[in-house]
Amino acid sequence: MEQDTLAQATAYDSVWANTNIPVMEPSGIQAVMLSDDKILVVLGVVLIIWFGIVFFLYRTDRKLANLERTVE
């Protein structure tokens, strides 16, 4: 397994090549997030940003709604 990973390593990889790779079998949320080369972590990060922007838009929207009530 470790050999396998090292064989696929690229030039950009060399600095990390000697670090310890955890060998404990992951479980639960770890198992899900670490599957498919950790692509779901990227999804998580994108979702955090998406919800951050949505949250901000929601707040702006509420400010506008308050103003609309003031006008009426």
Binding site: I21, D36, I39, V42
Partner: peptide
């Protein structure tokens, strides 16, 4: 960010793509 191939990196794997977001 999602479709382009990137060099494989130990431990980081696909999370290297977080560079584009984080």
């Amino acid at each position: 960010a999602f479709l382009l191939d990137i060099p494989r990196m130990n431990i980081l794997e696909h999370t290297a793509r977080n560079l584009y977001f984080h």
